[in-house]
Design a protein around this nucleic acid. Structure first.
Lengths: 348, 348
DNA sequence: TCGTCGAATGTGAACAGTCACATGACTGCG
DNA sequence: CGCAGTCATGTGACTGTTCACATTCGACGA
């Protein structure tokens, strides 16, 4: 049953050196038609196990690799998602990206990330353009989202997209992680400790999560009838936190600061120390994100932990849902409060 | 001159809804052959400016986008580089990745990053496989490099690759950033301050840069006839630094520690503080990398700054050099020492 | 005046897959 | 015993682009 194949003679079949094996080469070696090989590759049900094995062997022998380009061309599906990110070295985004990559790959998708260097409209458009060139089938946006969103509208990209954080308004585009709830959580923690004058060091306001955290802060404060001052708009960096802290400490008309992320909180801590004050004795500071370093700050930072990996996974799930035209309604992920040593009752 | 085109009548030419415009559609609208359109796209020299404009207009009108897949198929060039990374959220790698993406894109290349979750051989092979599926033309490796390198050998990948850090030995594959020099720099700094018992908290030894930094440390120590103890092998995390610090402080038979990266130094700082000691009065600590947060540690960290962006750019340059078969000999980048407040003369 | 050259453009065939349809063999049923 | 139906496999056409090779046309030198 084995020696009836076409020309099963001494020629071990070698292909021209430069070229990689194609489906047809495999077919020839296995003694079947190229279509059969294609069926094996896509494991079509009706194929004899014996034939399948023969094809598999041939593939092994020729080191066959399906050609993505050809498949992409004919199916006009790139099996690629794009991620638009701007500060990827931040812990949260980076963790999510990793999870996205993994989840995507499980479904045979790959991921192209594009970094936004500047946040002006021109570079946003250029970045989206680049992603469009890759024929991405879906988009995850971890960037100054409001601007990107309008750019997408303007370019009339016909691609499903997901923003990493809840917009509070949008339907299937936004991932409902309750940033607002997280912000309320830390704020309540401070209030319960007895703080009555609390500053908020916010993130850039074109970031939806920055805006959501700020909303949560303001809501919790007003719910508890604590008067608020205008939030300070930062840029996520420790440097900014430091400078803001120095500025703030010139007056010292507060007992606590809620920083919209952990990096800025680090800068704040630095400024407090430099002013000869002690956190948490004189001033309580809380962060947001729980980066792996936060536990080793001086003092270890009270913060909000978010499950960034889970967020990433959900991004992919949502994208697939949109691709398949169904509505995936994922329950919101609840952030958790991590009380460490940077918060205490106010001194007076 | 404008109304002599073929059939410039009332049909505005619309293509079947689902399909995107192809080179042939553009050709029809512009009244030229598809080859001419192809020439315009690749800006071939001999094409009449007038014709070119007509084609350009048609492209604009149809919102034409060249189809990557088709081009890839026929040229068998993916115009894609792969990055294999393992701890991308670390500042250094992340910064380099961004620079790589940018530099690549300038030459019309895109970048696919693949994250290594586990560092066992199986997942390395799987990751390389995934990258190979994308038909990447070059590879940048930011990962436990020695293992990856052997995996590449074993898979007989015929792709030029660059490792982010100097191996000290390899030729054109390795990027010569002088890790050894950097390590010598900090070590000398400590020695010059008067330290004679210095511990080294190293990175995982399958990371080439970890190994190089350790080599630099040992070399500088022995050059100055300072006796050394065996380096402690860490995992780059602040958590590890903290635990190692606690362990080390039980004996306190040293006056300084050189940590192979800033994160571990942060953990060390934490342990020192917790032991009721002061850095730098009791113990000096130095890091490596100069992450943006290092300036805000308690105390601000003395460390080695590396130009990660420049490294990224060079990766791409090297890759192109390898692709074109020429030898690019880039001068090494010299790291610089940043003295902040975590180092001082030893107390006794 | 004619062949030659180069510029500008067109034609056919590849590239490596998938899809729709066709074919042949075998099974089960009336 | 013939016919329908399924299983296993094969054939031809098509995807959007580039490459190698025509073809046309005007200019120019012999």
């Amino acid at each position: 049953m084995a020696d009836d194949d076409t020309g099963g003679d001494a020629t071990p079949f070698e292909l021209p050196p430069g070229r990689a094996a194609s489906i047809r080469d495999v077919a020839r070696v296995a003694g079947v038609s190229y279509q059969t090989v294609s069926r094996v590759v896509n494991d079509h049900p009706s194929i004899r196990p014996e034939t399948k094995q023969r094809v598999l062997d041939a593939m092994e022998q020729l080191q066959y690799r399906p050609n993505r380009a050809a498949r992409m061309l004919v199916t006009s599906r790139s099996k690629t998602f794009g991620i638009l990110t701007s500060n990827r070295h931040h812990y949260g985004p980076a963790t999510s990206i990793r999870a996205i990559e993994e989840a995507a790959q499980e479904s045979g998708y790959s991921v192209v990330t594009k970094n936004l260097t500047a946040t002006d409209d021109a570079s946003i458009v250029q970045a989206l353009d680049h992603l469009a060139d890759q024929a991405v089938e879906g988009l995850v946006i971890i960037a100054p989202q409001v601007r990107v969103l309008t750019a997408i509208e303007r370019l009339s990209l016909r691609v499903p997209y997901v923003t990493l954080q809840s917009t509070g308004e949008a339907g299937s585009h936004a991932l409902s992680i309750d940033q607002v709830a997280g912000a309320r959580l830390v704020t309540r923690h401070l209030i319960e400790l007895g703080h009555r004058s609390i500053y908020h060091l916010a993130g850039p306001q074109d970031w939806i999560e920055a805006e959501a955290r700020m909303r949560g802060f303001l809501a919790e404060m007003s719910d508890n009838d604590v008067p608020t001052t205008a939030p300070i708009l930062g840029d996520w960096t420790a440097d900014f936190g430091y400078r803001a802290g120095r500025e703030l400490l010139r007056f010292r008309d507060f007992t606590a600061i809620f920083s919209s992320n952990d990096q800025m909180a680090l800068g704040l801590l630095h400024a407090v120390r430099e002013a000869g004050l002690d956190c948490p004795r004189d001033i309580s500071i809380v962060g947001f994100d729980d980066i792996p370093e936060a536990a080793h700050f001086a003092p270890p930072l009270t913060t909000i932990r978010q499950d960034f990996a889970e967020i990433g996974r959900r991004c992919v799930a949502l994208l697939f849902a949109q691709l398949e035209g169904r509505d995936a309604d994922l329950p919101a992920i609840e952030p958790t409060l991590l009380v460490r040593s940077s918060t205490a009752r106010p001194a007076f």
